[in-house]
Amino acid sequence: MRISQTSSSANEPGRIRLLAAVLALLLIAAALFSLCVGASGTSLLTGLADLLRGVSSPAARIVRYIRLPRVLAAMLTGAALAASGVLIQGVLGNPLAGPNVIGVNAGAGFCTLLCACLLPSAAKLLPAAAFAGALLAALVILLLADRMGASRITVVLAGVAISSIFSAGSDLITTLDPDATLGMSAFMIGGFADVSAARLRTAAVYILPALAAALLLAGDLDVLALGDEVAASLGLRVRRTRVLLLAVASVLAGAAVSFAGLLGFVGLIVPHAVRRAVGGEHRQLLPLSMLGGALFTLLCDTAARTLFAPYEVPVGILLSLVGGPFFLFLLLRSRKGARI
């Protein structure tokens, strides 16, 4: 009875609009707050005020060149990972799926290690290597799955096989050249400490169009949720749509991983939390998850760099430490996971 009540009210358009507005306002407030606090002790608002007035004070420069890119990076990454999670979970009909299922993490990890091993001095290439690796792994999996008919289970199985091959490659490099792993732990944990405006711009070039494409394809995702046969009978080209959606998801996750490291957990928990609030229809779930992912990642990153200032906790650790218990709390509150 409780289920039917929550879900019947959950789909009222008014409630969803209200939730979207609340999330957007919270996001703006969090972004402003995050711009005003930091390890440098720059006083509240002065930097932001100077920046807006066009005064080039040190405080304004800190806001402009350090905090602003970082705030934008956290929001962009959170939105991209959450959207990627929604797409992958929807396409595969599997609530446990995430970017790791299509090999994004394993591919990115392998190529980053390979780059560090072959070109130890070219640390600047690492993000590009991570992006290339993420896309390469996803591409191989999609081609294989397409060959085998792109059914849900073949995508997952191909993902497991390819991921383990890339992981074995990573282990091989680690064994043969232990020095290559120096500086890798930051990537594996994930964080925004190294974000620069230039890297942000590169990632945004991929992420923003991919987010737009995801929003356009959300309706098709709803039809796909009816199962392959029903979707096909409604005139949806199932195989093409599935591969296209996974390609968009891998660009999103790959670009996010390339400059933020392995933060895949966002892509798992944010869609679930939002789904519990608004139901499973992707035209609502996707935009709200983007907002939710941006907000959650930004809050965690702000906490990560201010709680123990001047020291900084990698945000990946905080995301899991905060997100994990929160996720368990959600699971416990649902009746034996009925809404998941």
Partner: peptide, 21 residues
């Protein structure tokens, strides 16, 4: 695909029950 779906509707035997109104 879509023109055919406007001509012919098909209800398969297996119908999933997604989270949808």
């Amino acid at each position: 695909a879509k023109a055919f779906a406007r001509m012919l509707a098909y209800l398969p035997q297996s119908r999933p029950v997604p989270m949808i109104t």
